[in-house]
Design a protein around this nucleic acid. Sequence first.
RNA 1: GAGGCUGUAGCUCAGUCGGUAGAGCAUCUGCCUUUUAAGCAGGUGGUCGAUGGUUCGAGUCCAUCCAGCCUCACCA
Length: 514
Amino acid sequence: MAENRQVNNQEDKNLYQQEVHELLKRRREELEDLKQSGVIPFGYEYDVTGYSKSIIKEFKDDAPAKRYRVAGRIMSMRKMGKASFMHIQDREGRVQLYLRKDALNEQYDLVKLLDIGDIIGVEGEVFRTKMGEVSIKADAFEILAKSLRPLPVVKERKKEDGTIVRYDPFSDKELRYRQRYVDLIVNPQVRDVFVKRARIIKFIRDYLDNQGYLEVETPALQPIYGGAAARPFVTHHNALDMKLYLRIADELYLKRLIVGGFDGVYEITKDFRNEGMDRNHNPEFTMLELYVAFKEYKWMMDFVEQMIAKLVYAIHDIYEIPVGKNTVDFKPPWKRLTMFDAIKEFTGVDISQMDEKLLREAAQNLGLELDPAAGAGKIIDEMFSEFVEPKLVQPTVIMDYPVSMSPLAKPHREKQGLVERFEVIVNGQELCNAFSELNDPIDQRSRFGEQTALRERGDDEAHMLDEDYLRALEYGMPPAAGLGIGIDRLTMLITNQESIRDVILFPQMRPEGK
RNA sequence: GAGGCUGUAGCUCAGUCGGUAGAGCAUCUGCCUUUUAAGCAGGUGGUCGAUGGUUCGAGUCCAUCCAGCCUCACCA
């Protein structure tokens, strides 16, 4: 009850502000004026025959004028008494309109009721103005949606060298994320990032489909979560009266499908992890996972290298792209280092023969502060994260990880205590994670046992024992290589965005309170 | 979770030592039929994030809270 009242108060307040605020009030009055004069301020359709950029591109000064019907949002206006110029924005970009009284006759009176932000449809001939801009001379227009809120006005000026100066850009990050629709309208570069994101996902999907891999869907609601070390979101199913978790990874279900006889499956979907948020973490994020039967991790290295390089080329037409202050060259082959060699290269310390005690000493000599509970694997990971990872700017494959950090990966065929796992590091960050999949059910059970022990010691991110997954492995899973790529971070890299919030349309935010 | 920075008009921002809240754009009125950050003249518009305190007086100083960003921690 108290909650309802609060909501109502909030609604009242919003209504009140809409009533009172001068700019909102004015637009509502304009809307009434339009209705009074018999104009429908929210049209039903518009038969569009041309788009801004294409129209401008196809224009020829010496050819007969072409007619088009265009539709878009008014982004700027210059009203000059009996003639007006405006730019409308459609899916391709912007085009200038020229509206004059002697072409529009009595309809010209409506022009004074148009605002920046309104969506209109316009019909007319293309021509070039005295100042040289290809424009559309309107002989009719319709209002398709009257805008009732003032759009942030971003003015642009083209300098003589062709570069565009933007004045008063809509730049408040909080407002941009909360009102992404406004961000997309006024910041074309934001739109571009999300178009690229879509192209990235489509490229990957096409690439995998063309190689014969099957796209599948596995449960997002899971009774037992697994496949990664993370805390889950918990929910409840009413009819079954049971606790369910939102997936933190797809891995264990996809490998069940490898058991089932599909020999190449992938999924591109949302995972959910109940953790802190920062420039690299959003509670829901998009993962690609791929599993290929009868292959192992070195095959997967070649595969990822090719796929990512081709992806970068498909998006940018070049392998070298700017990432932050650096230029990253994705052209294969990429440097490959074992984790031990990488640590040796950047710290001068050879840890390949060290036991936990020696490792601890070596780490402390390098100035690392260690949790006393940290085991050998954790210490190695710390050393790597601290001294190596930040320095790897160019794509680098790091391989052969300690077994204790990889409970689902297959033991290294030659090196005791390691698994056949690799990550690709770019610009100091993990781009993907992959390994030869553990298919020995006895070994897998004992790995789960170690995780259970960790869980009992209070590590709530340790893996849960998944009895059904073990049952599946006991039927026999072919050897397989698996790969995980965070699509959001991949997109950050390829579009050179420094925050995950800039590649997610609606990033998670605290509730808006006023 | 800790520290730092930020919050002033629809947007982008100034605001000095505590002394009657400012600019540009948007918006309104008037003029203007090839303008383009259109122009010219004149207006409107503010719970200074919220609450409390100090003070004769707070946008400014103090405390608490809210939101955002950054760094660290946690975490892939």
